[in-house]
């Protein structure tokens, strides 16, 4: 997968994805042994349905992810879990409590990292944490003790007394994470924790989230990035157009929906040649069970990339670039929706 700045990849579909999703929810799950329990969870804005009857459970100690493209309904779902957005239909319990009745009680045990930073630009870095601690009814002393510890945890101690605005994007994100931890939440909701961060900043955030998980904090996050999902999530659901289209661990999903290996072939496109995809696929026919034609390359799903590449050469194909890689969540998404994750 390319960096997020890569231009939108308009995909040409060659193969229909026949994957049918069968909800992989444990039949015996109840609102009591799940930290988050959702059945038929729906969010409507007027006549528009942003979340369309989704089912999922998050168990204590788990790292659970929502993976999906823009507008899939990830944030809408997270905001309902965070009790700031009323549920339109269906069942949702968080800590076994109902958002509509016990919103404040749920929020007191929740840490929230919203998609858009909502730091207070009128306050210093430290004050942002202090006042948040006060919102959670900590004493000033306790709030300060935790704030100092958390700034250390996210490596912002030197910036304690600075204003928020000059901080870099990565620093702000870390500060929002620190702020979300001031009440020592047992469940942390993270809406795109690393979008817009450079690789180094992302790895720092991943490391901190991993440590939190080690301490037993349950993570529930959304992301566009398959590598993030693979790094952080024990289990995830793929969302597309307001629905959940697949559920499982990253490994299970890859096993279920894509082959072990993917062969990427690039061909030089001669001048004057417009669209040779049909021609190409014709030539590849029979080499593997599934192909995906992207504007710049052809993906061939196969259990043995090397062998398939050799077979293609035998047929006289002369790709300018050949790459064999493992099947990824990106391929899962492509298979299920026919679209790429980062648009």
């Amino acid at each position: 997968m390319g960096p997020p700045s890569e231009p939108p990849a308009a995909l040409v579909r060659c193969t229909r994805a026949h994957g049918q999703y069968h909800p992989g929810v444990p039949a015996n799950a109840t609102p009591l042994d799940s930290l988050i329990y959702a059945r038929g969870l729906t969010k409507r804005f007027g006549s528009f349905t942003a979340v369309d009857g989704v089912d999922f459970d998050v168990a204590p100690g788990e790292a659970f992810g929502f993976l999906g493209p823009n507008g899939a309904g990830k944030t809408s779902t997270m905001r309902m879990i965070g009790t700031v957005s009323p549920v339109s239909a269906g069942t949702l319990t968080v800590f076994g409590l109902e958002p509509a009745h016990d919103g404040a009680r749920i929020r007191s045990r929740l840490g929230v990292v919203p998609q858009a930073d909502t730091l207070d630009r009128d306050l210093s870095v430290l004050e942002n944490l202090l006042i948040y601690g006060r919102y959670f009814d900590l004493s000033w002393g306790e709030a300060r003790r935790r704030a100092v510890e958390l700034l250390e945890f996210v490596q912002l101690t030197e910036r304690s007394n600075d204003q928020v605005e000059p901080l870099s994007g990565g620093m702000k994100r870390r500060l929002v994470i620190a702020r979300a931890l001031i009440n020592e939440p047992s469940l942390l909701l993270l809406d795109e924790p690393t979008t817009g961060l450079d690789p180094q900043a992302r790895h720092l955030v991943w490391d901190r989230l991993y440590r939190l998980k080690q301490r037993g904090v349950t993570l529930c996050l959304t992301t566009h990035y398959m590598d993030e999902a693979e790094q952080l999530c024990d289990r995830l659901v793929v969302m597309d157009k307001a629905r959940i289209v697949a559920e499982g661990s990253p490994r299970q999903l890859i096993e279920r929906y894509v082959t072990r290996e993917v062969l990427e072939l690039r061909f030089r496109r001669d001048e004057g040649e417009t669209d040779d995809s049909a021609h190409l696929v014709g030539q590849l026919e029979g080499l593997a069970e599934r192909f995906e034609q992207l504007p710049d390359r052809t993906l061939v799903y196969t259990s043995d990339g090397e062998a398939t590449a050799a077979a293609a050469f035998e047929r006289g194909l002369r790709p300018t670039g050949v790459l064999v890689r493992r099947g990824s969540l990106e391929d899962v998404f492509l298979r299920l929706t026919g679209r790429s994750l980062v648009e």
Binding site: V84, A104, S108, P114, T118, L119, D120, D122
Partner: peptide
Amino acid sequence: WEKTYLAALNTPLG
């Protein structure tokens, strides 16, 4: 503009 309220709503405040 500053969305101060949105941050506060993620706490027990209503």
